[in-house]
């Protein structure tokens, strides 16, 4: 029993060390990626198109709906406490600091995290990774780094979009409940919005992007030889990403508010 616990702990520790080593390699190769001309730029552009551009619609719809929901709830609850003026503060804090980066990260995990893990896993099984090595391309710099950069950049851009569309959704509800000129609505928002709100959201977006891309590529490469391992890699990529995103979110929030 104790031996089993010891073996399991050793395996977990060695997997953690391996994962940290993988993360370090990705960071090192990312620096190199920008220093020299790379055939990987095409992969980077494709990744930004898939992760960023193609997720715009779902992200926008979700943001509008969330913005509207916050406004509906806020405008029915806050007056009961005589705190109607807090509506804009709550909107800004909830959307830019919390839900914008968090929900965008969930969307990217579900769409791109699984896609990256299963795609890389399939490449491992079909020996495509070895084929890249055989022609002299480093799989980390050619396959992982463009996906890493692509996901992080997309995450940042999509978070900004989420914020804009979230506030737009709220504006739509405002027009129904209590019609307000757009300039007045924007002025109220801007007077509440602080630089730290924006930076906080972007910091979370950056960290979540790093988490999703590194976990997905790591899980993809962890496939060994059987095609049955590929969906498992996808599932693990999603599960682990969700956990790490929430942990990172709590830690960043604690640092900011503690």
């Amino acid at each position: 029993m104790i031996g089993q616990i010891g073996r399991a702990t050793r395996l977990k520790a060695s997997a953690l060390l391996y994962g940290l080593g993988f993360f370090y390699t990705v960071l090192r190769e990312t620096v190199r990626f920008f220093r020299k001309s790379q055939v990987g730029y095409k992969v980077l552009i494709m990744q930004i198109l898939f992760t960023g551009y193609e997720a715009l619609a779902i992200n926008a719809i979700m943001a509008i709906a969330i913005g509207a929901a916050i406004n509906v709830i806020g405008s029915s609850l806050l007056p009961q406490f005589g705190q109607s003026q807090l509506m804009y503060t709550i909107l800004i804090i909830v959307i830019t600091r919390e839900l914008g980066p968090l929900l965008t990260a969930f969307v990217i995990t579900a769409r791109s995290g699984t896609a990256i893990a299963t795609q890389l896993g399939t490449m491992v099984v079909n020996h495509e990774i070895e084929a890249y090595m055989a022609v002299g391309l480093n799989p980390v710099s050619y396959l992982v780094v463009p996906r890493f950069i692509g996901v992080v950049v997309s995450m940042l851009v999509l978070t900004v979009y989420f914020n804009i569309f979230g506030l737009l959704g709220s504006f739509i509800v405002v027009q129904i409940v209590k019609p307000t000129p757009i300039m007045e609505y924007l002025a109220a928002l801007m007077s509440t919005l602080t630089v730290s709100d924006v930076l906080s959201g972007l910091l979370k977006a950056f960290v979540f992007g790093v988490v999703v891309s590194v976990v997905a590529t790591y899980q993809g490469f962890s496939v060994n030889r059987a095609s049955t391992e590929i969906p498992v890699a996808g599932i693990k990529a999603v599960g682990l990403s969700f956990i790490l995103i929430i942990v990172a979110d709590v830690l960043i929030t604690l640092v900011q508010y503690a």
């Binding site: 399939t122 079909n126 020996h127 495509e128 070895e130 084929a131 890249y132 090595m133 055989a134 002299g136």
Partner: peptide, 18 residues
């Protein structure tokens, strides 16, 4: 990199990039 420039590898199952 120099070694890879000097060598070529044919895989048993082709291993083309899909």
């Amino acid at each position: 990199f120099a070694f890879r420039a000097t060598t070529g590898f044919v895989f048993q199952d082709a291993a083309l990039w899909a």
